[in-house]
Design a protein around this nucleic acid. Structure first.
Lengths: 119, 119
DNA sequence: CTGTATCCGATACGATACTG
DNA sequence: CAGTATCGTATCGGATACAG
């Protein structure tokens, strides 16, 4: 039995989880991965329930983390395009694996909930 | 180009993300997966920064979702043991994949942050 | 169009104390 | 030991309005 004094960080995937699965990041990355390079307003419409403030916050974070690039075109009106990076693309197999897991196991989760709630 | 009116849910992994990567779930599942069946107080000590209230909340949620079982032994003092279910175990390959991704790519993320912050 | 600024409410978390 | 109850707080996200 391994013992540790820093148990929370003893979960080796915690940093990656914080990075990849913080709120709005998967829908944004999914949109960029699926529909390709697109403008701010396109993302805003696709993620219909997001506000511009939050979308900006998340895009900045993703840009800082190297998962997304931001390209500014100094025109009138201004045009900004966001695109997923190779580093962001490298998450695709993970997302696919998660989608497969969900296809196979989400029904079991709902079944478990029904059983649990029936008490 | 596919178009949809429900863009947030157009991210097919969103439900699974909510289920698996909500706060504290990965450290708890990791502890149960790594160290096996254990008591409430053992989990509490391993996740040193968690409070009993939150630990209870998360364990109930995991139990309801079928990822964890709770076994109550009516003794004095009472003894309760938690164990990961086969459904919970089915997440192991996903977690391993995430760990591999982190090993290879977290350094790149930190590098990207350093570059970004240097402006 | 692409954001920023402000305010606000909900939620979630932690601290603490207490019970069976 | 295994929780529950209560309280205070902090953070985050949404709504709205506005600017370059």
């Amino acid at each position: 039995m391994i013992e540790t004094d820093d148990p929370e960080l003893a979960c080796p995937i915690a940093p990656a989880v914080d990075l990849v699965f913080s709120r709005w990041t998967t829908p944004i990355l999914w949109a960029l991965h699926t529909y390709g390079r697109q403008r701010f307003v396109q993302l805003e419409r696709r993620l219909s329930s997001i506000t511009p403030k939050v979308l900006t916050q998340r895009l900045r974070q993703l840009e800082r983390d190297g998962l997304v690039t931001r390209t500014y075109h100094p025109e009138v009106p201004p045009r900004v395009e966001y695109e997923i990076t190779p580093l962001g693309q490298s998450l695709a197999p993970l997302f696919a694996g998660l989608a497969d897991w969900a296809d196979e196991n989400l029904p079991k989760v709902h079944e478990a909930r029904a059983v649990f709630d029936a008490r």
